[in-house]
């Protein structure tokens, strides 16, 4: 699994979520920090050999609030990975809780485009 640095699809600036990627004999586990993203604003997409993680931040902001200090200054996260051939993108498992996404990608063959269902625990 490698990361794509080129990004031609969205000219809009996004935050890059930090990730951990751990590989064992049976597959790859990816953890991504997406704080502030509700489950319905998380989008995972696997197409051919590309995994795209996108999320939109939805904070509870009172009316008329002015920011005085902002370390998280964009409302969107996005990160794209290229999956290697031995990973089975049809069997990706996803869990999303407390702003942490956990993806499990087992090792197998070929790939087809499909959406991944998100399960919250």
């Amino acid at each position: 699994m490698s990361e794509q640095t080129r990004d031609t699809q969205t000219p809009e600036p996004t935050l890059m979520p930090p990730v951990d990627v751990i590989e064992d004999a049976n597959g790859i586990t990816l953890y991504a920090d997406l704080p502030g993203v509700p489950k319905d604003k998380l989008s995972l997409h696997v197409e051919v050999d590309t995994l795209t993680i996108e999320g939109e931040v939805a904070l509870d902001i009172p009316e008329g609030m002015e920011a005085t200090h902002a370390e998280v200054s964009l409302p969107r996260y996005r990160r794209v990975f290229t999956l290697s051939k031995e990973l089975d993108s049809e069997k990706v498992g996803a869990e999303f809780a407390h702003g942490v996404l956990k993806l499990r990608i087992p090792k197998a063959a070929h790939a087809q485009p499909r959406r991944i269902e998100v399960r919250v625990e």
């Binding site: 704080p35 502030g36 609030m65 002015e66 920011a67 005085t68 902002a70 998280v72 407390h98």
Partner: peptide
């Protein structure tokens, strides 16, 4: 690494602090 990342804002009535601390 500055964890958790923080945003701070204010209104006339309150001060609002957002600490981005996922998985805690």
């Amino acid at each position: 690494g500055g964890f958790p990342a923080m945003n701070v804002g204010g209104t006339a009535k309150s001060v609002e602090i957002y600490a981005f601390a996922p998985g805690v």
